[in-house]
Design a protein around this nucleic acid. Structure first.
Length: 720
RNA sequence: GCGCGGUUAGCUCAGUUGGUAGAGCGUCCCCUUGACGUGGGGAAGGUCACAGGUUCGAAUCCUGUAUCGCGCACCA
């Protein structure tokens, strides 16, 4: 016990994360080292990650926590390796999600819709709401220990990003990549807006499937309410059952509201195997039908309006909501003897909005689109379509997707990509810089003058998100940041938004900047509960990262999300797992206590004997191994290797075996041992710092001898 | 329908270029004036989904099957 005066008093108690985390974060933030401009030394090589911006109105969940842990590990490693390291934070307005949330709350409290409130007032309320909740998410991000450069914080709707979005739109319009057209789009009657193809989520549902007599044919449908306008009957040209009918043939028949002249259309789209092999089409309310109609130049008639109400074409049913009308229409057809049979157990997928859950009603609408097939000149002078370019940069490995198997998924998506509908009929978002006066259209940022009306629509939130890697660095201005930090090194995100976001960034950056947005895409898995189920409110199995941080510390929370989870594989998380890693933080704490209790600063002057040199070399070899793993983005293996070395080798063997020497009389052997243990401790702390920054920094702050005041900018160990 | 991934100890998963299996947690037993009981020591526990094939040798490579999950498409 004679050495007790050597060690700071805290080490006599177990490590308690709550005593240290906020003060440690303050030390880091106060040092200014989160900002690459303030980093010590002459740093040349830049290393950049742009944080996938969480929703401004959101709260931190385990998916965020995993993302923050992974990115912070990469960033802290790069920073310690002497790179000019920037991790750029931001938040996302999440247009539709945020607006419907605020609208919902206003309706609940004041029974007012957005139309009653007006555009200006609604936007004011949304801003109030986002300002308030912004601080919440930012503080929660800090609790994870994230070493983000807050001085560069960006918001998708702030002035700099506004400028970028406007510039992007105008440029792409001028290049002919953006056009306005009447096309069938996914209309969400609940949200009163269109949504993009990949914002649709298919949900299984059981509905009656009706077979109706349509002249000489039997047709099937789940949606009788769309059938009023069905005056085309489609069959496959190779279908011999219908060889007697010819393309364009007119057939008189009795239909819902009386007699009708139907026209026979022969088209490959009719599948001979499905149903009766014959179908009628509703071009105004079905994507496939619309395409058939376009191929044959058929009439397109709207049957249902934007609110889901039947139009005059429905005759006596006009003005009725489709939900009500369905059964009445069936009744009428039944009375007319036109119902052949009803299958009550038909299971099919219905399209719903990914945000908000409204059932999608395809509609023809005049919308803005990005043309993905048009050939344009890229900044490098090459000629290609957006689609081709997006494929090319991954094929030629300018962008490396991990795990690699997602490359195939990516190609598959690109190949099926259609023009991207970028206008939304909501109010919260970047308003489209298009101006109308009578039949004239002008696309420019400011009003062309008197009498010009700006387009009411706003841009799809993914349009502005697509610019994120460079809009955050000041584009379209040619800033130093843009020059230094773009392309970014890694884009780290969940595999669930590979298409939504990753692909869109590639599209925007290659065209507008002439660079890939990032060199590496690292896709992490979804965080699931201990049994592998998705975390959800209804299952009640949500593990709150903030609760875990409070109970076990941010370090333990980070480790639990990183260890044992390979790229792209889902992470199964249980509270026990987090608790287990808290023990490791304490272990490290006690290792330090032991080393310091038996330490004498003077020992650092001696030279290591052969045996001790070997021990230090062993730790340095580990450093190389860890570095290799991190370079390959195998953080799980890097963390695992360090964990096992520190606990299984350093603590269990090296420390144990040195006890008899340390307890003995002062000697060269003892001094050498003291020095070796101290050096190994230093190496261990450095290697662990990216994974568990708080406890390692807390220990570092108490060390009697070190090369930098702050571990965060200490030099990364190598095997030399 | 097309594609992808998983299937290894009770649970969660490793297993790098093929050399007859590992970790953590859990379970059971032992150990407290020890740096740390948030600890230490030890034990039990696996026909590596199944069937073929290649090979001196297969958890690992190939083919097929089953099963679970995911993505895309279709959904009249």
């Amino acid at each position: 016990m004679e050495n007790l005066h050597n060690i700071p008093e805290e080490f006599l108690k177990p490590y308690n994360s709550q005593d240290h985390e906020s003060s440690i974060y303050n030390i880091w933030e106060g040092s200014g080292y989160f900002n690459p401009d303030n980093l010590p030394g002459n740093r040349k090589e830049a290393y950049t990650i742009v944080l996938p911006p969480p929703n401004v109105t959101g709260t931190l969940h385990m998916g965020h926590a995993a993302m923050l842990a992974i990115e912070d590990i990469l960033i802290r490693t790069a920073r310690m390796q002497g790179k000019r390291t920037l991790w750029l934070p931001g938040t996302d307005s999440a247009a539709i999600a945020t607006q419907s949330k605020v609208e919902g709350e206003i309706y609940k409290k004041e029974k007012k819709t957005r139309y009653e409130l007006g555009r200006e007032e609604l936007l004011r309320r949304i801003e109030e709401f986002t300002d308030e909740s912004k601080t919440t998410i930012i503080n929660q991000v800090k609790h994870m220990g994230s070493s983000l450069d807050w001085s560069r914080y960006a918001y998708t709707l702030d002035d700099t990003r506004y400028k970028a979005v406007m510039e992007a739109f105008v440029r792409m319009y001028d290049a002919g990549l953006i056009y306005r057209g009447n096309r069938i789009v996914n209309w969400d009657p609940k949200g009163q807006t269109t949504v993009a193809d990949d914002e649709i989520e298919y949900v299984e549902q059981k509905d009656p499937f009706y077979y109706f007599q349509y002249g000489p044919f039997v047709i099937g449908t789940v949606r009788p309410e769309t059938k009023f306008g069905d005056k085309y009957v489609v069959m496959n040209p190779r279908d011999e059952r219908f060889a007697q009918y010819s393309h364009g043939q007119k057939i008189e028949l009795e239909w819902i509201n009386g007699p009708l002249t139907a026209t026979v259309i022969k088209d490959e789209a009719a599948d001979m195997e499905t149903g009766t092999g014959v179908m009628t089409i509703t071009p105004a309310h079905s994507g496939v039908d619309f395409e058939i109609a376009q191929r044959h130049g058929l009439d397109v008639e709207q049957v249902i309006d934007e609110r889901g109400i039947l139009l005059p074409i429905a005759g006596e049913f006009a003005g009725m909501h489709i939900k009500k009308a369905r059964s009445l229409i069936v009744e009428k057809l039944q009375a007319k003897g036109l119902v052949v049979k009803i299958d009550e157990n038909y299971v099919h997928n219905i399209a719903t909005s990914y945000r908000g859950g409204g059932v999608i009603e395809p509609q023809i609408k005049k919308q803005w689109f990005i043309d993905v097939n048009k050939e344009v000149t890229f900044p490098d002078g090459g000629l290609a379509s957006l689609k081709q370019k997006m494929r090319e940069v991954v094929e030629n490995k300018s962008i490396n997707i991990m795990p690699e198997r997602y490359e195939r998924t990516y190609y598959h998506w690109i190949d099926n990509l259609r023009d991207w509908n970028i206008s939304r009929q909501i109010w919260f978002g970047h308003r489209i810089p298009a101006w109308f006066k009578n039949d004239e259209v002008k696309v420019q940022i400011d009003s062309p003058g008197e009498g010009w009306q700006q387009d009411e629509d706003v841009l799809d939130t993914w349009f502005s998100s697509g610019l994120w890697t460079f809009s955050t660095l000041g584009w379209p201005d040619k800033t130093n940041d843009l020059k230094t930090f773009h392309p970014t090194n890694v884009l780290e995100t969940g595999y669930d938004i590979l298409f939504f976001w990753v692909a869109r960034m590639i599209l925007m950056s290659t065209y507008l900047v002439g660079e890939v947005p990032f060199k590496n895409v690292y896709l992490h898995g979804l965080v699931r509960d201990g049994q592998g189920r998705k975390m959800s409110k209804s299952l009640g199995n949500i593990i709150d990262p903030l609760v875990m941080i409070e109970k076990y510390g941010a370090d333990a929370t980070r480790l639990s999300l990183v260890m044992g989870s390979a790229p792209g594989t889902d992470i199964k998380l249980s509270e026990d797992r987090v608790r287990g890693f808290k023990h490791f933080a304490n272990k490290l704490w006690n290792i330090t206590r032991f080393v310091l209790e038996n330490f004498d600063v003077a020992a650092l002057q001696t030279s290591l004997n052969e045996a001790d040199q070997k021990l230090v070399d062993e730790a340095r070899t580990l450093a190389t191994e860890v570095t290799t793993h991190i370079d390959k983005f195998r953080l799980d293996l890097a963390g695992d290797a360090t964990y096992h070395y520190v606990w299984g080798r350093f603590a269990a063997e090296v420390l144990e075996e040195s006890k008899h020497i340390l307890k003995g009389e002062a000697s060269e052997e003892k001094a050498s041992k003291q020095k070796a243990l101290y050096e190994i401790l230093i190496i261990s702390l450095k290697l662990l710092h990216p994974f568990m920054p708080f406890v390692t920094e807390a220990i570092w702050q108490k060390l009697p001898q070190k090369d930098t005041d702050i571990l965060m900018v200490a030099e990364w160990p190598t095997s030399k």
